[in-house]
Design a protein around this nucleic acid. Structure first.
Lengths: 336, 336
DNA sequence: GGGTCGTATTAAAACGATTCAAATCGAGAC
DNA sequence: GTCTCGATTTGAATCGTTTTAATACGACCC
């Protein structure tokens, strides 16, 4: 007897396998006395339920799959923590995959989730996966989109309002006396970048005397921030910006570094505002002002929506929740 | 017919279910012609194999489970990437759990892995899990420890030599003229901290005129670095250090920030060396000198060992691999 | 004492794939 | 034309659990 099974437990407790199963899954149907006897048998034999068999018969896998865009970005690990916190309370395992923005990795995880017949999937899509998601849904797996609304709004989603973020960051810079604001980030095609940028432009226009200079980058990391700064400092002095609005904190950290190394004083000469408010923003040499995204809350909200839909798919209405960012002011944008 | 099954595929291709199974799992046993016919049927029907059933009958789950200590620490996400890269090539799904150094989370994931009858588990243990791991092993799940050797050396492991790391960092500081070196990190009970610290002391002793001042912290984050600095700067000027060796980069970033805000010049007044060489180290306002740990390599090595053991458990000898760190010199420790 | 009803228990079927031993097929040898 | 052998294919059993419908058991009432 290498590994104890239900029938072994049943034999030991002097009951039938069906009763053991009931004890495990519907304890109220079993009398307290037998329940205790079964529990004792389980402990003595060290019985661990075979989940594959359970899943096959029950037709449902309690696990939730999640595909994150970039596990190296603290923003997404925050989101994941929010999801984890909700699911742990629900006794549902979370299976996390990292797409690294690569379509084949994303497809790999979708295959896995499909084969495992997951109850639900949370995804920040990177490739064109609408068809895959529809297939999942048709197979009975609920889907909630995180931080990305698709044009087709057929799936519920939770996202954070980028326009508001772009606006409050810009207004803050304008109110503290800055006028020429460089927006660094890209590629311009990314929805997040486009939304933040156009909101920044609108805010500058509304203000009257503000101006946005867009410096496009091909990625959103520290390196992009550094090259962005190089390009800005090549401008004739009269055209140099007095503030930088970085599309995320990684870029902002790169900007801060490049400016520091070149002897430009932050915030005296140039102010910086980042985006995401990752932990490293407040720990930078000059603590960064940043647009805080409620990442953890986005994760927990998405997980809650998903669990609700699974619990009662019939009552499921597609919902789109948009959370609001807020500005956290720190040293890097203090008025000079 | 809600979802296609093997028998549907078989019917469509005009073969028996057994042949379909063979086509999927032992393609060499099936003639090319039928193989093509079956593949066509699969595509037409959109068949996706039910993994629960497969696993139940085959008695094995191809997936590998991994429990990381702290997903918010870039060091561990690097390790995870190394693991992922190997497993993806092996067509094995990776199921990642984050213990956040909390025993109950760790236990939760171990439960999951045990119920799922995983082929293998990679773990950086936080609690006292030896018994659990033994049980897993007895149930047929192979185990490899990552970055933590237990006293009981019964499980294979991959780790990185902390003594070497502590030594090379200290020697570098001494060689560039520093004499009073503050070591910041903790709690002192952590094996990593203890090993790095004692190696630093040994190096100082060997050099003759060096001195290590240990400042213990209760965690390893930026906040700890800041409070560490506060304590050091309270010392009378004659006792102030001229260098800081931080137990990891998060602490080092906190140190850099606190020094900058207080007007202490880095590296002129105080040099800094960190540990881990996370991406943020090179992106700091003053790029950080750091002890680079081959995190990615550790992950890929561990995954390779695990896959080998699973492939041939009989030939499995317990092995302990120790990788060497190297020093990456940057601005923060440039000689003044 | 017979009948009714609710609770606790159980026997047997079912979930959907893989495996094993046995059957079938075809080509080449004689 | 028959026989042999290796390559393909297949029927039936099986993996370990949950579920369903039926049974057993008392307690309570008349």
């Amino acid at each position: 007897m290498p590994v104890a099974q239900v029938r072994d437990v049943a034999a030991r407790a002097g009951v039938s396998p069906a009763t053991v199963s009931n004890a495990l899954n519907h304890p109220t149907k079993v009398s307290p006395a037998t329940l205790a006897r079964i529990q004792a048998a389980i402990d003595e034999l060290g019985y661990i339920r075979n989940d594959a068999a359970r899943q096959l018969r029950a037709g449902t896998n309690r696990a939730i799959g999640m595909i994150v865009l970039d596990i190296a970005n603290p923003f997404f690990t925050d989101v994941a923590r929010g999801v984890e916190d909700v699911l742990l309370g629900q006794q549902r395992p979370l299976i996390m995959g990292n797409s690294s923005q690569e379509e084949h990795r994303e497809a790999n995880y979708l295959d896995l989730f499909e084969q495992q017949r997951m109850d639900g999937v949370l995804i920040t899509p990177t490739g064109d996966v609408l068809d895959r998601l529809r297939r999942l849904r048709d197979r009975g797996t609920s889907v909630v989109l995180v931080d990305r609304m698709t044009r087709a709004t057929e799936f519920s989603s939770v996202s954070i309002d980028d326009a508001t973020g772009g606006r409050i960051a810009t207004e803050h810079l304008l109110e503290t006396g800055r006028r020429r604001i460089a927006f660094i980030g890209g590629p311009a095609g990314l929805a997040q970048v486009a939304n933040r940028l156009s909101a920044a432009r609108a805010a500058a226009e509304a203000h009257g005397s503000g101006e946005i200079i867009y410096t496009e980058t091909d990625a959103m990391n520290a390196e992009a921030g550094r090259t962005g700064v190089d390009r800005l400092l090549d401008l004739p002095p009269s055209q140099r910006p007095d503030a930088v609005f970085a599309a995320n904190d990684l870029v902002a950290l790169g900007v801060l570094q490049a400016l520091t190394l070149r002897g430009v004083r932050v915030p005296d000469d140039i102010a910086i505002v980042g985006y995401d408010d990752i932990d490293f923003a407040s720990s930078a040499a000059i603590p960064l002002t940043s647009v805080r995204q409620p990442a953890h809350q986005m994760g927990s909200t998405a997980a809650t929506m998903l669990v609700d839909v699974i619990a009662d798919p019939a009552a499921s209405t597609v919902r789109h929740i948009t959370l609001m960012p807020e500005l956290v002011v720190r040293r890097s944008s203090q008025s000079s």
